[in-house]
Simulated scan of single mutants.
Amino acid sequence: MAHQLIFVLGGARSGKSTYAQTWAEEHGERVLFAATAQAFDDEMRVRIARHQAERPAGWTTVEAPLDVGDAIRAALDGHDTVVVDCLTLLASNALLTLPEDYTQEDATAAVLAEIDGLLATYAASDAAWIVVSNEVGMGLVPPTTLGRLYRDALGRANQRVAQYADEVLLLVAGLPWRLKG
Rank of each mutant, 00 (worst) to 15 (best):
D116V: 03
V141H: 12
R45F: 09
R178T: 07
A35C: 07
S17Y: 02
V31P: 04
T18K: 14
P56N: 12
N134R: 03
G174A: 08
Q38R: 15
E105Y: 09
D126N: 15
V84Y: 14
A74F: 04
V31W: 15
A37L: 13
R156N: 02
D101W: 09
N158H: 07
L96Y: 12
T61M: 11
E43N: 06
V82H: 15
L146M: 10
G147T: 03
L90V: 03
W23Q: 14
D126G: 00
T145C: 03
L66Q: 15
I48W: 05
G174T: 01
V31S: 04
R47Y: 14
T144K: 05
Y122Q: 07
A162N: 10
A113M: 06
V8T: 05
G147H: 08
E25L: 07
A165P: 00
R30E: 04
L95Q: 07
A20W: 14
K180T: 00
V131C: 08
M138A: 10
G58W: 12
V168I: 02
V141S: 01
M1V: 02
N158E: 13
T108L: 00
P65G: 10
G58E: 08
R156Y: 14
R30H: 15
R151D: 09
A157W: 07
D116A: 13
V46D: 06
A173L: 13
L170P: 00
L95N: 00
V83Q: 05
W129E: 01
M138P: 06
G15P: 03
A153F: 00
S133V: 06
K16D: 07
R73D: 02
W23G: 06
G28L: 12
A74V: 01
T97F: 04
L169S: 06
L179Y: 09
Q21G: 01
S17I: 13
T36M: 01
S125W: 07
S125T: 13
G137H: 13
E43V: 08
A35G: 03
R13V: 00
K16R: 09
A64E: 08
V31D: 11
E167A: 08
S92H: 10
Q52G: 03
V168R: 11
G15C: 04
T61D: 09
T81F: 15
A110P: 06
A127I: 03
S14D: 07
Y122K: 15
P99M: 08
E167N: 07
